[in-house]
Design a protein around this nucleic acid. Structure first.
Length: 419
RNA sequence: CGGGGUGUAGUAUAUCGGUAGUAUACAUGUUUUGGGAACAUGAGGGCCGGGUUCGAUUCCCGGCACCCCGACCA
């Protein structure tokens, strides 16, 4: 994409009403636009990041048997009354409204009811199990206090998968697979090194749920990490009894602030019971389905990546989620530079490399460099009179102090050394 | 929902009971081009409602919005 066609612009000053680093950088870079507290629009660059994350997550979900679909945002009262979650006294984050004919509806704040209701249509036999439907969807929660930029919003985009299993053994098998899938996701998203499988409170059907917690001061949770075992315990279950159960010692646990970037939860029959979601087993008996839920907030994940991976100049996107892999800068106004930069742009595109081409005229070199640092693409490639003296371009990683000049003929190989 | 704070131009800020200033961004022109260039010119502003006052952006009351701390987070 040519930057001259990108309507968003960077700004020098962070907005006064944002103190969260993720929001400061994402707004300065033009990735997101704040609509109101806890509600953000995703601008072209920001959307590309969300789409990259979505691709990573989709790939891992499909790999463990997930089947993508899309539940509706508008939900009817009847379904939620079955699980006793329609009442505002029970759930205080509902956004509710009414139909013209007077019927009551609410905006989906989670998916258990929708999936339980839908799957009741399709699960009748043990042959129908297991099933792992999931969706990417915008979720609405009327939070009393939105905060931390895009980390805790009133409207957010998430992935939610629900597992439907015939018994606990089948459930556990998938549950373990999902742990690995989640680890893969956070590894690919570039925050694996600071993300820990964390034991958290489990509810009535399981002693624990599992959260994936990423260390950052911007987090809302306190966790205790055992570095050698690579696991952590959430403060909410940080008791002597739990530590003994998990074989952990307070001596080796280190306290950290962290943000929950994902969670997996055994639901047992909590929802299958009220929805009477049963199947007939091999013996002809009617048995309740065993369920689990598996969530990841993509906006929060994006915010977390920014919190973890940035410096005083801007964002440092991992290659896997960067809006573009390469930021190509044309410096100066000479026709020769413009021509060679355009040729480089075409060459990179033809090689299948995603590139943002700063072709803007009348913009100083310093400004282009500052923008490139702020926007944080993994590679910066500069075409200028200086680089053309060596018949090439300067290539610099965002993480490097200085670049190296690479002849045009070697550029693709330089970027794809293993190709 | 409890507590605290803040609302001035697209953005960031200053001052003030009596013509609201600066920076940046924007427009035009000239010069400039490897780390947010220079000069000139131009356009652009007091959250909403009420009160006090000769006069309110300023003081008072109410509302709304936003930020922070706490509670909540299925």
């Amino acid at each position: 994409m040519k930057q001259s066609q990108l309507f968003t612009k960077t700004r020098k000053e962070a907005p006064a009403d944002e103190t969260a680093r993720n929001a400061e950088l994402l707004i300065k870079g033009g990735f997101i636009h704040k609509e109101m507290a806890g509600v953000y629009s995703f601008l072209p660059l920001g959307l590309r990041v969300i789409e990259k994350l979505e691709t990573i997550i989709r790939s891992e979900m499909n790999a463990i048997g997930g089947t993508e679909m899309r539940t509706s945002a508008i939900q009817v009262k009847d379904v939620w009354e079955k699980s006793n979650r329609w009442d505002d006294e029970v759930v205080d984050v509902w956004f509710k409204t009414s139909l013209k004919n007077g019927g009551e509806v609410g905006l989906s704040f989670t998916n258990e009811e929708a999936y339980s209701n839908i799957m009741k249509q399709y699960i009748h036999s043990y042959k129908d199990l297991p099933a792992y439907p999931y969706d990417f969807k915008t979720i609405f929660r009327n939070e009393t206090r939105a905060k931390s930029g895009i980390m805790r919003g009133r409207e957010f985009y998430w992935k939610a998968l629900y597992s439907f299993s015939k018994d606990d053994a089948q459930h556990q098998e998938f549950y373990e697979k999902s742990k690995q899938a989640y680890k893969n996701i956070f590894q690919k998203a570039g925050i694996g090194h600071v993300t820990y499988l964390t034991f958290a409170s489990g509810g009535s059907f399981s002693p624990f749920s599992h959260e994936f917690q990423t260390i950052t001061g911007a987090g809302e949770d306190t966790i205790y990490i055992d570095e050698s075992k690579g696991i952590a315990v959430n403060q909410e279950v940080y008791t002597d009894e739990v530590l003994a159960t998990l074989g952990l010692s307070k001596d080796t646990l280190v306290e950290h602030r962290a943000v929950e970037v994902g969670n997996i939860f055994s639901l047992g029959t909590k929802f299958s019971a009220p929805f009477d979601l049963k199947y007939t087993n091999e013996s002809g008996e009617s048995v309740l389905v065993t369920m689990g839920s598996y969530g990841i907030g993509l906006g929060r994940l994006m915010g977390t990546i920014v919190e973890v991976l940035s410096d005083d100049k801007g964002i440092i996107w991992p290659e896997s989620v960067a809006p573009f892999r390469v930021h190509l800068l044309a410096l100066g106004e000479s026709e020769n530079v413009a021509k060679e930069a355009q040729a480089t742009y075409d060459m990179l595109k033809d090689a299948g490399i995603e590139v943002l081409f700063d072709d803007r005229g009348g913009v100083s070199a310093g400004e282009k460099f500052a923008d490139a640092d702020l926007l944080g693409m993994p590679y910066r490639i500069v075409v200028s009179e200086r680089s053309l003296k060596d018949n090439g371009a300067e290539v610099k990683k965002r993480t490097e102090e200085r670049g190296t000049n690479v002849p045009f003929t070697d550029l693709i190989a330089h970027l794809n050394p293993n190709a």
